[in-house]
Design a binder for these strands. Structure first.
Lengths: 334, 334
DNA sequence: ATGAAAGCGCTAACAT
DNA sequence: ATGTTAGCGCTTTCAT
């Protein structure tokens, strides 16, 4: 513990200069004599001075905070996005502040409201399906707003992501082209994970175009996990064993599906092809091939960070306002 | 976008009261007449007023920020801890601010310094092996410091975690008791992931006590991943096929090891027992049993959050200053 | 190259 | 129940 933190004024007194000179010296301003600068720096070290950003930002009317709101930390996808944002902000002097809203739009709004009160210089949110009240909050904030991970909707400002509807559709096309005909769908928390719902809708659209449909569906309210994917797959195959393909809401669920098939002795992908979404590291090491759409999560975070840097620097038109990523499908061949 | 954000003063003018009354009304103070409160609230809504926490905190000399520094987001362990912290802080009015230091002590120090400048009311850091300069920074901060996830060392203030040395030792005991004798070790980034190193050291100590040692080791500088665990396992089994147990730096690596064994046709756990650390969700769904130590990551985060709340509330001695978690070993039976 | 004054938006403390 | 004054720690602006 210890005593109260030293202030700039105390450092200035210690160094025998005015607050202003101390401030300049600390910030490495050019017009401070070397001698003075040294004395101030030394005084600051002696007093273990740590500047007060609250005062700095209030006074200068600028902050280095970038607010970021994600739905969850339980799905590796979001930590990876955050890592990308954090890395992309490195060296910019900006600092990401993360909030987790648990896929809850009300909580999201409150978190956004709270974060805005810190006067961030930009805000990054997940998706573009916020309710009107939240959108109003964001528009009113008068800072660059980046909507991340999804393209299917109308962005406020900047938009970085991929079309989940298209991702689902492309996967369906690949699977149908590969000869699959009897499809099952396994997903979870679709009311909350809107992007998973969009993928499913895109997938179904293509099925319809081919006169096909999901022969069976297993849905659950819980959030996605490997264990849940496994459980629902066991249930589905008990009902309808003669499927030749199951589409999952994501790779976690799909991996669980693969493990279920392995236990049941169902050959993957020969008998049943398993398809997910995300392109997780896990998928590439699995003992059997499963199909997935690679979503460049870290890259999206990095690009969002780059947009923030440019927007804050005032290069209003430096980049496109919408950055489109294309999901790359792997493992879907017959 | 829009115009400059409204200030409290503008809200007050709009409502025809003084700043102070507006402030009280907005904060729901008791001694404001219902009529006045309504007028102020309405004015605030009309102006889309969002309070300025910089000013609030500077003026009141308190903040609701809890600084959190973790080494990485690539390992699911840390996001889970963060989720626990975030959930544990819910409803307290406190807000977690996360920083990622990439297992880099210099970066960690800079992040801590930067975070302290925001005058957080508490700080949570990972482990207790910070270099002296970082420790000094933390001690000087004059706020509760929580060191998380590790117990092997001397805490500054509060300490929540488990002993990784002991976790490694207990795992070794269980495996030796189960009859395993020819051990291999596979790990990565041990110079940076000090807790993995402590587990290995604890494991080796027990081996020595039984006159045993690691017959082979595969180490790599890269960070842990399923793919890396798989690759190193293939390499190890090519060199020394007659091992009966491999201890991995964590469950990701161990899972990769299992997938390698499956591809090589090595029976797990009959021929080779695979042991990791963390107790990931993944492990429970895997097609073969692997041993692991359950580390209650989310719970650690929640407990850390509880300590923060208590400490900030001034209940100095409400809890033990050190909260010890015991890793539960599963899947290690013969 | 250095300093003094004013003020960022809010709350604490003290009126009334 | 409401208002006034002072000030949080810093930067901005303007002097010197």
């Amino acid at each position: 513990m210890g005593i109260r933190r030293a202030t700039l004024e105390e450092v200035a007194n210690e160094a025998g200069v005015s607050k202003m000179t101390a401030s300049r010296a600390l910030r490495g301003a050019s017009d401070v004599s070397k001698d003075t600068r040294d004395r101030v720096l030394e005084a600051a070290t002696r007093l273990s001075y740590v500047g007060n950003r609250l005062a700095l930002s209030l006074s200068s009317q600028r902050t280095n905070l970038v607010a970021v709101v994600v739905p969850s930390m339980s799905n590796v996808v979001f930590p990876e996005v955050l890592a990308g944002i954090s890395a992309g902000l490195d060296g910019s002097g900006m600092q990401a502040v993360f909030g987790i809203c648990d896929y809850d739009v009300v909580k999201e709004r409150e978190i956004i409201r709270d974060m805005l009160s810190w006067q961030p210089c930009a805000i990054i949110v997940t998706g573009l399906d916020q309710p009107e009240e939240t959108l109003k909050l964001l528009r009113n904030a008068d800072i660059p707003v980046i909507q991340l991970m999804d393209l299917d909707g109308t962005p406020i400002d900047f938009n970085v992501g991929l079309s989940h509807g298209e991702a689902g559709a492309e996967m369906a096309k690949a699977l149908v082209a590969g000869g699959r005909r009897r499809f099952g769908y396994i997903g979870s928390a679709l009311e909350r994970d809107l992007r998973a719902g969009k993928r499913k809708a895109g997938f179904e659209r293509i099925l319809r175009e081919h006169g096909l449909h999901f022969v069976d569906q297993q849905l659950d309210d819980a959030f996605s996990s490997i264990a849940l994917g496994k459980r629902l797959t066991v249930a589905m195959l008990a009902e309808i064993p003669d499927l030749d393909c199951i589409y999952y809401s994501n790779d976690d669920m799909a991996s669980g599906g693969l493990f279920a098939c392995m236990e049941l002795g169902v050959r993957v992908p020969e008998k049943i092809l398993i398809a997910g979404f995300n392109g997780l590291d896990l998928v590439n090491s699995l003992p059997s091939r499963i199909a997935t759409s690679q979503s460049p999560r870290r890259a999206m975070g990095e690009v969002a960070a780059r947009l923030v840097r440019e927007a804050v620097a005032g290069k209003e038109i430096a980049s496109e306002k919408t950055i489109i990523f294309k999901p790359l499908i792997t493992g879907a061949d017959p």
